[in-house]
Amino acid sequence: MRSSSSPNWEDNVNVVEAVQAIVHTYPEATIVSSLGTATSAARHVTGDGPHFYFGAAMGSALAGALGLAEAAPHRQVVAVLGDGDFLMGANSLWSLSACRPTNLLVVVLADGAYSITGGQTISCPLRLAEVGAALEGLSGATADTAEALRAELTSLPQPGLIEARISESVWPGPSPFVDPAEVVRSVRASLATR
């Protein structure tokens, strides 16, 4: 169980900065992003890069990332999930614990709200550092700043869970609604060529 934090309030982090940290650390990774802020941020940061954007299927992105990671073991996979989406499919953590792919990081953008539906509050803290420590084969960490997130991305054993605490609310820009056919085409092309 690890926790990286900074007392400096100027270190506030938003979802775009968090995804920038992921892409900077793993530029060749395939991102699997959940509906909403996570998909919008991933599209924004990567210029609509070839990633597995979920246009719906709330609660299923973690399982999708697990299937992709096991099917493409030589590719780094990063699941970028909203905290609301994560909670809808948190049972998949136990599957992750059983399968233990060593090419999968799970980053939960924890802003404490269901942003896509109007910002309703998520009432319970995620405590992913403790959850990761409790489940066999997993590791967990909490990051309060972009710098701390970058550090955990490079040092946390995989499969690992990172609770990226989002302290600044922004909407990244691109629509979270994607063209499924284009998503499938681009991901398959990316996996075939790199």
Binding site: G67, A71, L191
Partner: peptide, 19 residues
């Protein structure tokens, strides 16, 4: 052996998009 049926579908989706 996964925990729920929709999880199986999403897991399979991840495998299928990887070919």
């Amino acid at each position: 052996s996964l925990t729920r049926e929709e999880e199986c579908v999403a897991y399979a989706a991840g495998a299928r998009i990887a070919g």
